[in-house]
Each structure stands twice: as C-alpha cells, then as structure tokens.
C-alpha cells in the first residue's frame, strides 16, 4: 500500500488546430485532472504514513488508532450494532443517534444561528453604515466581536437553560458581528458616483438603499456570511461540550472522555469535511449571486 500513484494523465488525442475553444476546455480539464491526481496522491501518502506508523506499533492505539479502526468506528456510528461484542442488545449508532444525525443536529443549530444573524446583521449593518448610529454602536459591535463565544456561554446557559436555545443564541452572537461588520464595510465601499447616478435618476433615500447600496455591498456581505459560518462551526463544536447530544461536537467530546479515540478521529474527519463542503457551497453561491466580483 506504500506505492505512490504515478498519476497517469490521460493523453488527449491531438486535435485539429481549428477547434479553438474546445482546445481550451480540454486544456482546463487536463489541468483539473492533474490537480485531482496531486491531491489524491498526497492523501494516499498521508494515509499510508498513518497506517505504517500504527502497523509498526510505534504509538499506542489509544493515542493513534490505525485507519482501519477509525473506519470501523465510522461505520459502527452509522449503523445499528450490538452494544458490545457478543451481546444481544442492539443499539442505534452512537449515543442513540447515527453519526449523520449528530451532524445534522449541529448543522441545524448553525443554520438557525447564522440565519438569524443574517436577518439581523444585514439590516443593522446597512443602518450603521449609512447613519450616525454607526458611530454610536460600532464600539459595542467591536466589543462583542472580540469576545471568544465560550466566554459567555455560561451566561447564556443561566439565561436560556442548558438546552438548544442557549446554543443557538451563542451561534447567533458569534455569527452576527462578522456579518454586520462586512455589511458596514460593503456600504462604505460603495462608489459615491454610483449613488449620485441613481439619485440623478430620481431615487428616493430608500430606493438608493435598495437599488444601489445593498446590491453593491453583496460581495462583502457574502464574504461576511462565509466568515460567520466558519466561525459558527468552530463555536458549535465547543458549545456542544455541555449537553450536546445529538451533536457532532458533543459526540466528539464524549467519545474523548470515554477514550474512544477512533470515534473521536472519525468525528474530527467528518467535521472537517462538512466544514469544507459548506464553505465550497457558499463559495459557489457567491459565483451565482455576484458574477461581477472582481470585474466591475
């Protein structure tokens, strides 16, 4: 398993010189395949190294279980299985939920927290960016932004209880400063003549906001949402330390306490992949919503 892959870049048949745009597309596809092969071989190398280190028993499986064990933990966490080897009692996944249910639970909290942050953060940013309220409120926004969310989770639990409400509040408070700040900086970045132009077309104050300021700020706002979502991810995992089942962060924490290292690693991998996919999704949303980014 240690052999490296000599990524066989598929040779393309020489094309007729007339096929210009097709050549271009083929060139791009070839480039993408090369990149994919590079990533695949890097990953394979890392996995092999991991496997090798554990197979040679250089470290105790308690600290670093072999890849196979992690895979088994991942499968176990997603299926009904006996509670212990040889037992008749069948349990569902881990802690009564499948791993993907834990993941969904965390994603739901993020969706609600970030969703609320979008609903509140964008209008607030618009108002702060266009009126004197910005000067008044900016220090408080900065204050909130600089607090690590874990510093006030205790307070939120006292206020809203140990259940989901305090977790969602935490995510909201973590996600909304970056969105509001991004909106403000978007508003401040609007070219004055873009505002002048629409006012010369007869736009009211309100129309200036909806027809120009808001759309012109969308690229910044979307970046803010991406930052906020990333931040919410790291926060949700931490928030689930207390009473976080179902929840992928809660599961990872619990598994760690029970020395189920393989399950912890399985959770970590899932968290990482989910975060990357989420960000990729937002990035492609950006391409759809602001195709002019960097062009105008």
């Amino acid at each position: 398993m240690t052999q490296t892959v000599a990524a066989p870049a598929p040779e393309v048949a020489p094309s007729t010189p007339a096929a210009g745009p097709q050549d271009h597309r083929r060139e791009r596809r070839r480039h993408r395949l090369k990149l994919l092969a590079l990533h695949a071989s890097t990953l394979l190398l890392l996995l092999s190294a991991w496997w090798f280190v554990t197979a040679m028993e250089w470290v105790s499986p308690l600290y670093l279980p072999p890849p196979g064990d992690v895979w088994d933990a991942f499968v176990r966490a997603n299926t009904d299985h006996p509670v212990a080897a040889g037992s008749d009692r069948i349990v569902r996944g881990e802690q009564g939920y499948y791993l993907w249910e834990h993941l969904i639970a965390s994603l739901q909290r993020i969706a609600i927290g970030v969703g609320a942050a979008i609903v509140v953060g964008i209008p607030l940013g618009l108002v702060m960016g266009t009126t004197w309220l910005g000067v008044v409120l900016e220090p408080y926004l900065n204050f909130l932004r600089s607090l690590p969310p874990l510093a006030y989770i205790g307070l939120l639990i006292v206020w809203f209880g140990i259940g989901d409400t305090s977790k969602v509040w935490l995510l909201f408070l973590a996600a909304f400063p970056p969105i509001a700040m991004a909106t403000i900086s978007g508003v401040h970045g609007v070219r004055q003549d873009q505002v002048n132009a629409v006012r010369s077309l007869g736009a009211s104050r309100r129309q200036v906001l909806t027809a120009v300021v808001l759309p012109a700020s969308t690229p910044d706002i979307l970046t803010g949402i991406r930052v906020a979502t990333g931040f919410a991810w790291t926060t949700v995992v931490a928030a689930e330390i207390a009473n976080g089942i179902p929840g992928i962060g809660g599961l990872a924490y619990l598994a760690g306490n029970q020395l189920q290292t393989a399950l912890v690693i399985a959770c970590i991998v899932v968290i990482g992949i989910a975060a990357i996919l989420l960000d990729l999704g937002l990035k492609s949303l950006e391409k759809v919503l602001v195709p002019w980014r960097g062009k105008a």
Binding site: Q194, N196, R199, S200, G202, P215, A216, T218, K295, A296
Partner: peptide, 19 residues
C-alpha cells in the same frame, strides 16, 4: 439642494450597475 430626476447626468466614467 441635491440631485434630482430633472437633471440627468452622463458621467465621464461610465457608472453602470454590474448587478
């Protein structure tokens, strides 16, 4: 006192909305 629809402005630099 400010811009108004009765005075249209063609800017030196095209000022169009990319969205």
């Amino acid at each position: 006192r400010g811009p108004g629809e009765e005075r249209g402005v063609v800017f030196q630099q095209p000022t169009l909305y990319p969205w």
